[in-house]
Amino acid sequence: MTNAPAGSPESARLGGVVPPVCTPLTPDMEVDVASLERLVGHLLDAGVDGLFVLGSTSEVAFLPDGHRRTVLETVVKHVSGQVPVLGGAIDMTTLRVIEHARVAAEVGCDGIVATAPFYTRTHPLEVERHLRAVAASVAVPVYAYDLPVSVHTKLDGAMLLRLAAEGVLAGVKDSSGDDGGMRTLILRLREAGTDGFSVLTGSELTVDAAVALGVDGVVPGLGNVDPAGYVRLYGHSRAGRWDEARAEQERLLRLFDIVNAGATDRMGRGSSALGSFKTALHLLGVIECPVTAPPQIQLDAAETERVRLLLAAAGLL
């Protein structure tokens, strides 16, 4: 949660460092429950403020429904109420998303995260209808996920303001890269006196700047690898220790180069990024196997060595 005083209107607002949890897999493509539990412990020990499971970094688009449920049940059980757990209900259309949302709520998630519909072409009014329907289907808070690079729809700021004011949505994870739009949303929320709506940035390389703009928290994929670094960065930024925040952000920016470990002539950037996170976690002894779900390509020995060198340079090995 945010650092607002207990009992204040902002004290219920989700904030801080909320990593999107990787999904460890076995070589035969089952969920590696033991590794997932170790990863959750790794994150909790670092002092994170929440966990987001079944998002992009969790490989949600690659996982069958049975895998999704196993991930949700494992994380909720292992966390045991220590921090909020958000469950991604990511799918193409409203009825499918509602089904995922109900499963996540049933297993005990504290909130649901949903994108706009995708694959089908939608009008802004249909996107709003979709988010309203998802929110009405569960008794836990729903957070919108602004991810135009994957769903090809940018969430409308006026719609988010409207759904925030009505209490339909509890917040937004902004991975749009539109810092101007995010800043405008924060300003309009403040001007409207809308309390309890969280703005979380998915832009993990500009956390210090985003906190200065007024975001409530960060959802960093690299936070799987170095959660303590993001906890320090967020703490420095919230306290106005800008020199320390800048130094920590720049260290993490250099570490983030692991996402480029995979050769561009043989794999996509998603394979490289997700593979590098898992490879780093494997090298750190957190997960048993760095495999990613098909059709993604795995890192080879030379690419793994590049990840190892960057971990060492960041002080993690």
Rank of each mutant, 00 (worst) to 15 (best):
T153S: 12
V103W: 01
V218Q: 02
V17C: 00
G15T: 00
T206W: 14
G193K: 02
L131G: 07
L125G: 15
L222K: 13
A301N: 07
D28T: 09
S58A: 14
L233R: 05
P290H: 10
P148G: 04
G229H: 08
D156T: 09
L205I: 13
H123G: 08
T57N: 12
L125F: 15
A293G: 08
R190F: 05
V215A: 05
G47N: 06
F256H: 15
M1H: 11
E305K: 11
A4T: 08
A210E: 11
V199G: 00
R251N: 12
L205G: 13
H123C: 07
V211L: 01
A165L: 04
P141H: 05
A144I: 04
L310Q: 12
G315I: 10
I112L: 03
T153G: 09
V85A: 11
A280W: 11
P148S: 08
V218L: 09
E30V: 15
P227M: 03
A210H: 14
E191C: 08
V18K: 00
L36K: 09
P294Y: 02
N224R: 09
A12Q: 14
L43V: 07
G221F: 01
G202R: 00
E248Q: 13
A6M: 15
I90G: 09
D257W: 12
I90K: 07
T184M: 06
T2M: 13
V172F: 06
G202Y: 03
V76I: 08
P295M: 06
V142T: 05
E106C: 04
E59S: 09
